[in-house]
Amino acid sequence: MNSLIVGAAIFIMIVCAHLVSWRLINFKSPAKGLIIILAGVMTLSLFLLLREPLITVAYINLIFVSLTLAYLLTMPAIESDSPSSVILLHIERCGEKGCTIDDLQAIVTDDRFVGERIRGMVKQGLIRKSGTDYAITDSGRHFLRFFVFYHIAAGRAHVGG
């Protein structure tokens, strides 16, 4: 139980350090920032070996690393707008009378949800722009394969939404 408390406390410190540095430094890649912080904390955690046996330190590392990985996968939702989140927040704001499809069309726009992602992927090298056309790059194909291979192996072809 003590390992859980120590591991969870380290995780909370990592998240706070990451969010504060993200706000102050305005990271180009917040994920890289988090990985650097995580690597630093894992190195510092070796000092725990002075007081605790190796197995306990490894266990504490397993706790905060798994929690940090979960946070890492939640980060894209903080970085860019998720359409479902924006729709839910807007519907809630409309109150009891509700939102019509026209209200929602005003906030779910091509530029906000597709254009922004296209520009992001050009910057990341997943796709390239030549003139007005876009094409997928080799790293884009590898990225795509990594995520869809499981679905294809499981016999589910429908992906992307």
Binding site: R117, G140, L144, H151, H158, V159, G160
Partner: peptide, 17 residues
Amino acid sequence: VHIPVASVRIRVLLELA
């Protein structure tokens, strides 16, 4: 598992592929 189902990025990459 869920990212390929819901992700706009994956859908754009699929269209480009």
